[in-house]
Design a protein around this nucleic acid. Structure first.
Lengths: 254, 254
DNA sequence: CGATGAGTTGAGAGCAATCAAGATGGGTGG
DNA sequence: CCACCCATCTTGATTGCTCTCAACTCATCG
């Protein structure tokens, strides 16, 4: 990543990281691959880099690849005629982008931060999916996890107050942070928001003003502290979790 | 179904319909099965019948089977400590219930109408999933469809007005109705609501009073007509679709 | 015929959206 | 180094939609 700095805005990345050295090797679709399968993937894979805000694909357009998010955050969103927008997918490192068997996405796909994708050309990937039950099973499992996440999201959008929505979102981010660090989200957790206020509003079904107001309210009451507008400190994780409206004590990631 | 009328409320149904005669033979998980696979399924399948309102399983409980909905409607829902409820899944005939690899559902599962399930014991089914790529691929495809539906639902909950939510819901039902009848939803479509007002409210993230009010408003304005409280007549499908806020003319099911 | 459950309708309150100014902060160029 | 600019974020005042609480209607059923 030193001398290769992005040839073109959305250009193919000449860099070829061996799968063995990949940071998401054991969490992405390829997690359960055996050496032979990994070789097959390695042959059809290439990298793409995007800048924050850049459009990866618009609804209805063809996408000739599927991909794993290596680093950064991507968003899927739907927009109504009058401009109302709702985010419908948030893809973090190791998440899978694209649908095998359909070459056009019904959603707009956007890079929400600087983003690195490990892309696979459709045909070879679908071939692998067909020939390797291990990969197919892994993708099914990931899709089921995504469906469960979407269902929690339905509860959030349908029934939670603005304050609970913000608390829930921060809780989700804190948990993911903790999973990555292999630590528990307890005292003094720091979360860097990968989204601006407007993107958060699109995620939570709110306006950006309401997002800002609720964050300010949580700050005033000491539930969170801010370092700049995009870094949140959580002095007491359980207190925040209690604000999210989720059942139980809002326990640990497991 | 004449002399067998439900031995016990949730009893196993002694009736064994041959898969060949099954009304959902070509739409359910088994759609792409070959004769040998069908025989395997046939061996581990059994029927369960539920009455409207009956609980199939509560969140966190074990479910020792997965199933296809043969007829009727089932709902998945999540409830918060204070009682707020959000439906997070609506399973219609041919839809799949349960998650292979997890034996307890994080959601409450309820029969919303009289319901007939074609159940498979977990182990044999997971074995088939492992040995038959065809079945695994079918389940993946169905899961991806469900994920897409959940994403449309996110837009509905996050950004649509009460009126648009009702119109969207009726549109969805009318389309499904049309798919079953192989006809287009145009003039004089009749939709039987499989849900009462409260269940609709839980689906749409509203209160039952608001559901009732919005339905009344659409009726007053001639967008729909009612025959009793659970039968809706749609004189002009495009007019209804226009109220749903979805893009385009709200065209055909395809 | 009362009793029950489901649905409808009304009046009022509350929460988030909208409209409208300010504040902050990072980057650029003089 | 400072002044300026622009995007992003914050805060305020008001409106409006949906929820809440409450009464009423209607059909069904013992």
């Amino acid at each position: 990543m030193t001398q290769v700095k992005s040839i073109s805005p959305a250009g193919c990345h000449p860099l070829q990281v061996p799968c063995e050295d990949c940071p998401i090797r054991y969490r992405a679709v390829c997690a359960t691959c055996e050496p032979s399968e990994l070789t097959a993937l390695e042959g059809s894979k290439y990298y793409r880099r995007y800048e924050a805000g850049q459009v990866i694909g618009l609804a209805g357009e063809r996408m000739d690849f599927v991909a794993s998010v290596v680093s950064g955050v991507a968003g899927l969103s739907q927009t109504m005629e009058d401009g109302r927008t709702q985010m419908v997918g948030l893809l973090l490192p190791s998440d899978f982008l694209g649908r095998p068997g359909r070459d056009r996405s019904p959603y707009d796909v956007t890079a929400l931060s600087e983003l690195l994708l490990c892309c696979f050309r459709r045909r070879p990937f679908e071939g692998l999916l067909h020939s390797s039950p291990r990969v197919a099973a892994r993708l099914l499992d990931m899709t089921l996890d995504e469906l469960d996440a979407a269902r929690d999201w339905l509860l959030l959008l349908g029934r939670k107050s603005a304050r609970e929505k913000i608390a829930s979102f921060l809780t989700i981010l804190a948990r993911r942070e903790a999973v990555l660090r292999q630590s528990l989200p307890t005292g003094g957790t720091v979360v860097d928001l990968p989204l601006g206020r407007e993107a958060m509003a699109d995620y939570l079904g709110l306006t950006l003003e309401t997002v800002s107001r609720q964050i300010s309210a949580l700050r005033r009451e000491g539930v969170i502290a801010l370092e700049g507008s995009r870094r949140v400190v959580i002095p007491d994780f359980h207190r925040l979790a209690a604000e999210s409206g989720d059942d139980s004590d809002g326990g640990l990631p497991c």
